[in-house]
Design a protein around this nucleic acid. Structure first.
Lengths: 150, 150
DNA sequence: GGGAAAAAGTGGTTTTTAGTGGTTTTTAAT
DNA sequence: ATTAAAAACCACTAAAAACCACTTTTTCCC
């Protein structure tokens, strides 16, 4: 099972291609032979999510099965399922981001690829740093988190 | 189990390499064969955290398992997992701090490495001393802390 | 206390590998 | 059938990692 960690600054070229960092590329090759699914993130942060295909296939049925009389559930389905694109790395280890997703996450030249365990997040560099600088906030945390000792 | 204590002033060279003090190096060699994980600190102080790999592997699953529909949990995951870098000491006992982490903690030439028991903290010297000078504050403390007798 | 030897820290050089951009070929659409 | 767009291919540039040599500090012995 793959375990993505760390962040990488990467550039998207004029054609919308982006080179996956070699460390990440190795992990992807092993986890899914380079077959990945990219989709939109459903919460307030407009970034993209990148799953190895097997991981996606665990998640997809769960999302499809949500009771969609609920508004939040419908939103999740439309965003996640409605934006999912299955793709493969090219010979040079790059992927071509679909225009729809590019504009959803406001991706321009400079991007950040963030490891999040079973998935990766793809951010516009500008938005990533803006998010980092946001005040930590006083959101209440789940009990599991309160109990952590880092 | 490792137990890091005390603080060391160290310098980072132009390439972002920093020499681990030999005392600390010995402890690291014993605890994890020199395999460490460096990541961002999640609270308001922008310093870095350094864990021996085995220690990190206790912590990582706990963080990955947090319910990430919660905003505070997502923030923790993005900071801790999204900045984690597994690394090894080079032949001369140095580590190369990734650029992302360097800028996160505002690391320049002069740094402080602070022992914190199971982990180490890495600070910009300037920020460390600034933090020391801050007023202690009147924050409320957890009951375990109230009960302490130093 | 001084000197020598060893260990620790520092900086630079070389080699390899990753990233970038352009070109050609194929495929699909009109 | 022709054109346009996308995908695969290939070559070049730049950056990172490994290697190596030198300087400084500390420790131990004389």
């Amino acid at each position: 099972m793959s375990n993505f960690l760390g962040s990488h600054a990467i550039n998207m070229d004029a054609k919308g291609r982006l080179a996956i960092p070699s460390k990440v590329r190795e992990e992807l090759a092993q986890a899914c032979g380079g077959r990945i699914v990219m989709t939109a993130n459903a919460d307030e942060e407009r970034c993209l999510l990148v799953y190895p295909e097997p991981e996606w296939e665990i998640l997809r049925p769960q999302i499809e099965a949500l009771p969609n009389m609920n508004k939040a559930a419908r939103r999740l389905q439309r965003l996640i399922l409605g934006n999912a694109a299955i793709m493969e790395l090219d010979g040079a280890g790059r992927i071509l981001v679909p225009p729809t997703l590019r504009s959803y996450a406001h991706l321009e030249k400079k991007l950040m690829l963030i490891g999040q365990g079973k998935k990766l997040e793809l951010w516009s560099e500008e938005r990533w740093f803006a998010w980092l600088d946001e005040s930590a906030g006083d959101e209440d945390m789940p009990p599991e988190m309160e109990a952590l000792s880092l």
